[in-house]
Write a protein that binds this DNA or RNA. Structure first.
Lengths: 210, 210
DNA sequence: TAGCGACTTGACCGATCGGTCAGTTTTTAC
DNA sequence: GTAAAAACTGACCGATCGGTCAAGTCGCTA
């Protein structure tokens, strides 16, 4: 039973994981209203009743997924201080955000769908912790500009620029693939896109790589 | 009857317009599957049967809306030639794309939803006319770089950068509002955001305003 | 005034929606 | 071995889905 210290997953853990992954797939594609529990159950290869047994309701499943996404993003984005090198910080920011688009595109699309709906479930998060996150970074960017260490660029819009440009490769993947004529985005594509973004944005902010 | 040359709208024209606008609102928010004809009818203040009388089916209504959007974008984006000034062209491109985000945010969100779903209805458009549009611009950007008139920046990714950064203010409006703590985006906000984008991207491409 | 085509709409169809529940099987604890 | 707990699931509920249809209303011309 539990004499195995390095626990193998419980039945509950295993099934919840399958359900979460399947639900992320369906919600990311069709949004909250457009997703059906039936479709999620089919993707998880479980009966509909079993899905509801674990997650309680469609609403709770959706909220739990959003929370998982926000938690992932929080842990992935490193903290910064005024003493750091601006170019390094912004380059790290761009590259780690782009890495998230590559490794967790479904999370990104889930979030995008929630925002498109008017952020009914994430309004407090946006006006709360996310706003604080942006403001703290913006304050540092502003001080860097005052010290002449970078061009005076409105820091909030700069953050939006980086967010949108990096998320584009997850949220609008279908468009990128259709226009470039590829079947999928390879590691090299993400690397080249990251390089291009760093090149333009760093220079655009009056920064050169250390 | 029709001795009025400057025609006042037909009953059909008037109702189709109300239905189209209502449908754009609902589809943009909830996506194809998540939108219901009932909700569209309610937004248009018409009985559901009347909506179906005019549009035939949900699918046809959705496709017609997508076509209206693509047509709007085509007419709004001006053509360019190799002889033009690179800085002027890119600045015009950024500002007209941002103007579309401001004047037609619902069209932008409708398109975003379609892409998030994997572009089931727009695949040929993406791989066809849209791809050609991008390639023709990219070719000019590449020649400008060869002539030393701008930095060598991968033109396709540059276009994606401009698309994503400008569409952000339409598609992710809820996020922008939540983080900036505003109730709505004013003309001044769009102007300032456009200025910021032009500043960073032009300089990032090694361009200065003429 | 009769007739015609465009427009309007409530009633209705089978399918699917989110969710409940009773009943069964499987796992766990002692 | 046994009983409690956890896991599982088919049947079913009322509501809503996209769509059809027949019975209208309305404005017009002959």
């Amino acid at each position: 039973m539990n004499d195995a210290i390095a626990a193998e997953p419980t039945v509950r853990e295993r099934n919840e994981r399958r359900i979460f992954d399947a639900a992320e797939l369906v919600f990311a594609r069709h949004g909250y209203r457009g997703a059906s529990i039936q479709a999620i159950a089919a993707a998880a290869e479980l009966p509909k009743s079993n899905v509801l047994y674990y997650v309680g309701s469609k609403r709770r499943l959706y909220v739990a997924l959003l929370e998982r996404t926000m938690a992932r993003w929080n842990t992935a984005l490193s903290d910064i201080s005024e003493d750091d090198d601006p170019a390094t910080v912004i380059e790290t920011f761009i590259r780690s955000k782009m890495a998230l688009s590559q490794t967790h595109p479904l999370s990104s699309r889930l979030f995008a769908n929630e925002i498109l709906q008017g952020a009914p479930f994430l309004q407090e998060t946006l006006a709360g912790s996310m706003r604080e996150w942006v403001e703290s970074r913006a304050a540092i960017f502003r001080r860097w500009a005052e010290q002449g260490r970078m061009d005076p660029v409105d820091p909030v819009w700069l953050i939006f620029l980086i967010w949108s440009a990096t998320q584009h490769y997850a949220d609008f993947e279908a468009q990128v693939l259709g226009i470039t004529g590829q079947a999928g985005l390879a590691d090299a594509d993400f690397a080249a896109a990251s390089d291009c973004l760093c090149q333009v944005i760093l220079k655009g902010c009056g920064l050169t790589r250390a």
